[in-house]
Simulated assay, not measured.
Amino acid sequence: MLENLTVVLFHPKFPENVGSAARACANMGCPNLTVVRPRNWNPERAAALATPKGQDILKNMQVYEDLPSALAGFEHVYGTTARTGGWRKGLLSPSKAAEGMCNHMRGGSSVAVVFGPEDRGLTNAETEICGQLLTIPTSPEASSLNLSQAVLVVLYECFKNAMEVDSVEPQAPSEANLVHHKEMEILFSSLKDTLRSIDFLKDENTDYWMLPVRRFLQRAPFRRSEFNMLMGLCRQVQWIAKKAGRGDK
């Protein structure tokens, strides 16, 4: 049911939480688990918490050394955060995020949802490369969730949305020929250079001022023709800026 969804655990601290996350994936029909740079990795300790139902997911999980490589092939990336404000704006609830994820998956797109380390969560730089951010509301008196609990909450909302909508609505139109996350990062890098060349962005804290641009462009999926058009536009603007003596800023 959630075949096009992948749970990505970034730099998890405890192998038991990876095993519990695999069990949550099995419970909610999500067969794909990716782990990025796990700490203290111990397959036996992870397997003990995965239970028999999660063993196959644990055995087949993908392991990467860095987050950009893990996300490169996805069309849509959602990140999770417990912190709000500052860089973290436009946060979605799990149910609202699940609605978007399921719509993308019905169109044939691959979706990743990223969970940060147990001890610190995702940093600003790590949330920046996620197209959308979601947060799980909790009581202020006990706001910390176990990693596998957070995974289960998000997957449950996706499972519920898939069950409810698929039973009453026709298949969504295809999202074929969309650019992947790696290509979007190339576009954002080119846009940043272009906006700096025309003094739209200043040298101080350019990543922060690029956030509204990133969030705006990530509201809708990008097709390859649109990606090529914007890349061509960036090249042309940078050429003109260089001719005007502003391209080396």
Rank of each mutant, 00 (worst) to 15 (best):
95 S>L: 05
181 H>T: 01
109 S>I: 00
32 N>H: 11
188 F>M: 15
171 Q>E: 10
21 A>T: 11
74 F>R: 02
194 T>N: 10
172 A>K: 06
216 F>M: 15
136 I>E: 04
210 M>F: 15
207 D>K: 12
227 F>C: 02
42 N>E: 11
197 S>A: 15
135 T>K: 08
122 L>F: 11
222 F>R: 02
210 M>Y: 09
243 K>Y: 03
180 H>R: 14
68 P>Q: 04
146 N>R: 05
10 F>W: 12
157 E>N: 11
137 P>L: 02
84 T>I: 14
58 L>C: 05
182 K>G: 01
25 C>D: 05
161 N>R: 13
191 L>W: 06
233 L>P: 01
156 Y>F: 15
112 A>V: 03
226 E>L: 08
237 V>P: 07
38 P>D: 03
54 G>M: 05
204 E>G: 02
23 R>P: 06
156 Y>N: 10
191 L>G: 06
148 S>E: 04
99 E>T: 08
200 F>N: 03
36 V>T: 07
247 G>F: 12
158 C>A: 15
82 A>W: 08
110 S>D: 09
99 E>L: 12
218 Q>M: 14
67 L>A: 09
223 R>M: 04
176 A>C: 01
130 C>L: 12
82 A>S: 15
114 V>K: 11
192 K>G: 11
28 M>K: 03
88 R>F: 09
42 N>D: 15
27 N>I: 07
206 T>V: 13
5 L>K: 03
165 V>G: 00
65 E>S: 13
21 A>I: 06
154 V>S: 06
124 N>R: 11
105 M>Y: 04
73 G>F: 02
203 D>K: 15
175 E>A: 01
17 N>G: 04
215 R>D: 13
71 L>W: 07
188 F>W: 14
122 L>I: 11
201 L>Q: 09
107 G>W: 03
231 M>A: 00
249 K>C: 03
82 A>D: 08
209 W>N: 12
206 T>C: 07
206 T>L: 03
115 F>R: 09
249 K>S: 08
120 R>S: 15
210 M>G: 11
134 L>A: 14
79 G>S: 11
138 T>S: 12
27 N>V: 11
110 S>L: 10
146 N>H: 07
131 G>C: 04
116 G>T: 12
21 A>Y: 04
149 Q>E: 09
210 M>H: 12
168 V>L: 10
125 A>H: 12
74 F>M: 02
160 K>W: 03
14 F>I: 11
149 Q>C: 08
164 E>Q: 14
92 L>N: 11
39 R>K: 14
14 F>C: 01
48 A>C: 01
35 V>W: 03
42 N>V: 00
58 L>W: 03
43 P>D: 12
92 L>D: 09
39 R>I: 00
152 L>T: 08
230 L>G: 05
55 Q>E: 14
237 V>W: 06
175 E>K: 06
134 L>N: 10
241 A>F: 09
190 S>H: 14
178 L>I: 00
32 N>A: 10
133 L>G: 12
245 G>T: 09
214 R>P: 03
115 F>T: 09
66 D>K: 05
26 A>N: 08
113 V>R: 08
54 G>N: 04
219 R>A: 12
212 P>H: 09
21 A>D: 06
13 K>F: 04
196 R>W: 00
48 A>P: 00
18 V>Y: 02
74 F>S: 01
88 R>E: 13
222 F>K: 01
